[in-house]
Design a protein around this nucleic acid. Structure first.
Length: 215
DNA sequence: ATATCGATTATCT
DNA sequence: GATAATCGATATG
């Protein structure tokens, strides 16, 4: 018997053209969309509440700024694909490639509200679901989110996130966030003043200090 | 060949 | 609020 979550009514794939645009537009419109993962026969899902745009040569904080390398190759490829990299030797970060093929740009997926597969994600994060704070710790940060969804570079870098068959994808269930705020990006030193972080106002599942979240 | 630096997080004080 | 952990990419000699 297949369990079907009520949140998954009217699930639509996103268009390739949706991602073939400036990362700033894509980032803003990605808020509220679903990240969906199939892992070890489990369905995992989260609603995006925090993302950041990274541009090309004119954005020194972007991995693409120094040009195309083996590491960032996906950023210069077709839009809508996963760019996964290791950060600080400890965690992975998930990005979606943007812009038409040949031009670099991406959106970093920083936080999501857990929607389905909470038990499995909590276990991946080493959390006990009993405590009220556990929900907030599942995917409130790029490293945490990758861990919750079992995302690694070896497993996921380069994957097409629009393929309905893929075990990692982005989809639209028609939900639209009420209010969106922009702030400077978190954790960078170069071009640190660009307001390229987009968050769902008032969400309980954001990363970073409260002052960065409009409170 | 060696040193430094991160698009972070957990665990302290 | 401060710091250790940890390793690949990049800078420096």
């Amino acid at each position: 018997m297949q369990h079907r979550s009520p949140q998954f009514h009217n699930l639509r794939a996103l268009d390739r053209q949706f991602f073939a645009r400036d990362p700033r537009e894509v980032a803003r419109e990605l808020l509220g969309k679903l990240l969906i993962r199939r892992h070890e026969r489990k369905l995992l899902a989260g609603r995006l509440v925090e993302v950041e745009a990274y541009l090309g040569a004119d954005d020194a904080a972007a991995h693409a700024a120094a040009g195309r390398t083996a590491r960032n190759d996906v950023l210069f490829g077709p839009p809508g694909h996963a760019y996964v990299y290791l950060i600080y030797g400890n965690y992975f970060c998930l990005n979606v490639s943007c812009e038409p093929e040949g031009k670099a740009g991406c959106v970093l997926i920083r936080a999501a509200e857990p929607v389905d597969g909470l038990e499995h994600m909590a276990r991946s994060r080493g959390l006990e679901l009993g405590s009220p704070k556990a929900l907030r710790l599942i995917a409130s940060g790029p490293g945490r989110l990758a861990q919750a969804f079992s995302i690694t570079r070896a497993r996921d870098n380069g994957k097409d996130l629009l393929d309905a068959i893929s075990d990692l994808r982005l989809a639209d269930d028609g939900y639209t966030p009420q209010r969106i705020l922009t702030t400077p990006r978190i954790g960078i030193t170069k071009t640190a003043d660009y307001p390229l972080r987009y968050i769902v106002a008032g969400s309980d599942y954001l990363s970073g200090p409260k002052k960065m979240n409009g409170r």
